[in-house]
Design a protein around this nucleic acid. Structure first.
Lengths: 362, 362
DNA sequence: GTGAAAGCGCTAACAA
DNA sequence: TTGTTAGCGCTTTCAC
């Protein structure tokens, strides 16, 4: 009975079938005017009949009324770090009446590209982005955003793209974590690094290397920098391999990790290998997710100002949105600090632990 | 110099300022046709001048081309449970070429309402939702979705709304967790419950009560059901209060928790109170987030099929979207299972632990 | 390469 | 309560 047209049903189709005008259909859809019961029903069943779904209308009042939204693209859904960033952005967004919608690239460049495209299509007012950086990185979709003058804030630097940025000096933060281990008397270090698509991971590795460069009596070979990843299982596997293949004289006594999740994974591997934290191995994490405080051995870590990063990014984005002129890109570097807990031991010749801050403006 | 109009600049404004036609502006924005270098530049600087940002066009080809998206509204950003659900939904969405965009209500009904509204406005093709249920729950925005025939899948039942559903029988799952404790010889139980806005929390409390009803020799007073929440800190605080105020004879020897996060929070409180898991207190979580396996004492818990829930929801949603007819709402109940790890002790008269499954179809 | 004009699917104003 | 008509801002022919 039904005539199957290839195209999607339109409001006109519904109006025709229900034998009313488009205006009436619009009215029942939006409750914008009173419609008699039976007319309403006719319209509704016509909608059901045709499986009609409204498209978009770029129209006067209504267009402004509908809740505006801000987009955020992250790289890992199952990473509490991003959860905190989201929360920070969300709070500010809500405060200004925006709904925050988030998508994740899961570290895949192509997915990021499509997400940007899709989000752009959904009519968000502005976009925050933690970019995926791989060697093949094609930035076309980002230049597209710039060309269209869509407000944009980056949460990790992209070389060659002039855009607002909120970030932390990861080199410095990571370096001072390694320095902390060195100051505690550790002579042999290791670093469990993050995923390849992360500029932050690169920076953190670099920070560790810088610390070592300033301490000639401390050892860290290329084999002591092991690629783990961003998750619990990554740290677990990497540590199992690293410590499983080494004895007390050939392994590091202190390790820094890409993030807290990796550190907790390392914990587990250590436990299985009957190595105690911090007696046998000292561990430092990164990010300071809430879990760090809840670990059996509370984790010493570098605190990232996650909520502030998200909040500030949203703030800057909204500022761009509200501006009547094009704003100059702005770069904000936030500070991090070392949080001392119980996962680092002071070795015989080390300086005793004392609260110290990392990355403060002198 | 600039004349400030209240309204947002339109394509016409840009065209006029650049002294070209709208068609040309459209061409440079979409790279849909070749435009001479200098014309392009004129257009681009006109865009910058006016801070023009494109609005939406509900148009022929282009409209279909732009990446389609699916919406998902969750209740807690910083809960790994949802991260897994998202991942499941995301995988299926990607498989079918959709981008998943997620928003969070953070348990607030009003925020949910606005998120639904905003997402609807962004032109998503369908919506998945974990509804906030509070006493004042106004369902208008959900009926709105139905009225507009926007494909919808619920991830928690809403009374009075006929819509597709993916869920787990939480009463049963929770009940069997309590049964497990009873079978291990525990005579006094407690339950650390979740947030008020969660139907699942209610169901889990109910499940515990049912288990108790079938075991007259086991004690659980109203005081043994304590409202904690959904996070680490909630479990920590609740357990500190509960166990801090009781001695060995007046406290539970086995507790079940709303979720794993609460359980890990309970762990910490117990450690501070010098109570050991499972020697002094046995703990069961809920959800089986990956952290459960990584806890110092691996956590026994009820595994929710999180990824499958998300994946199935997306599947059902896409099916509705692709359908040329309106589909009947479909309800899928998924199965959960008890995962035995190390956090439950068998008491003198209890049956020894043995792998057992919860909620299997006989 | 570029512009004029027609049209997209929708909402809004007003008359009936 | 309903239909007519006139837009909304954008894309897309199709001449030139």
């Amino acid at each position: 009975m039904t005539v199957h047209t290839a195209r999607r049903a339109t409001m006109d189709d519904v109006a025709r079938l229900a034998d009313v005008s488009k205006a009436t259909v619009s009215a029942v859809l939006n409750s914008s005017a009173a419609v008699r019961e039976d007319t309403r029903d006719r319209v509704l069943s016509a909608i059901a009949m045709l499986n009609y779904r409204a498209q978009h209308a770029p129209n006067g009042r209504r267009h402004a009324e509908r809740g505006a939204s801000l987009g955020l693209i992250i790289k890992e859904v199952d990473n509490p770090y991003y959860a905190e960033v989201i929360l920070g952005a969300r709070d500010v967004a809500e405060e200004y009446g925006y709904t925050l919608v988030v998508a994740s690239s899961e570290g895949q460049h192509e997915v990021e590209r499509r997400a940007v495209h899709a989000l752009r299509g959904t009519g968000i007012e502005g976009l925050m982005l933690t970019p995926v950086l791989d060697e093949t990185a094609d930035l076309a979709h980002l230049f597209d955003i710039k060309r269209r003058n869509i407000p944009l804030v980056l949460l990790e630097r992209v070389r060659g793209l002039r855009a607002s940025l909120v970030d932390v000096d990861n080199v410095r933060a990571s370096r001072l974590a390694a320095d902390y281990l060195i100051a505690r008397g550790h002579k042999r270090l290791a670093h469990f690094a993050g995923p390849a698509y992360s500029m932050h991971s690169e920076e953190r590795v670099h920070g560790v290397r810088l610390a070592l460069a300033g301490a000639s009596h401390v050892v860290l070979t290329d084999n002591d920098i092991v690629t783990a990843g961003a998750h619990l299982a990554d740290g677990y596997r990497a540590a199992l391999t690293y410590f499983g293949a080494r004895n007390a004289t050939s392994r590091a006594t202190g390790v820094t990790c890409y993030n807290d999740l990796v550190a907790i994974g390392v914990y587990r591997a250590l436990a299985e290998l009957r190595l105690r934290v911090p007696d046998d191995v000292s561990v430092i994490g990164f990010d300071d997710i809430s879990l760090a405080e809840y670990a059996a051995v509370p984790l010493t870590t570098v605190r990232m100002p996650k909520r502030r990063m998200g909040g500030l990014a949203a703030q800057m984005l909204i500022q761009q949105i509200h501006s009547h002129t094009v704003l100059e890109p702005r770069g904000e570097m936030l500070e991090s600090e070392l949080v001392e807990r119980a996962s680092v031991a002071t070795l015989p010749n080390g300086q005793p632990a004392a609260r110290r801050r990392v990355g403060e403006r002198s």
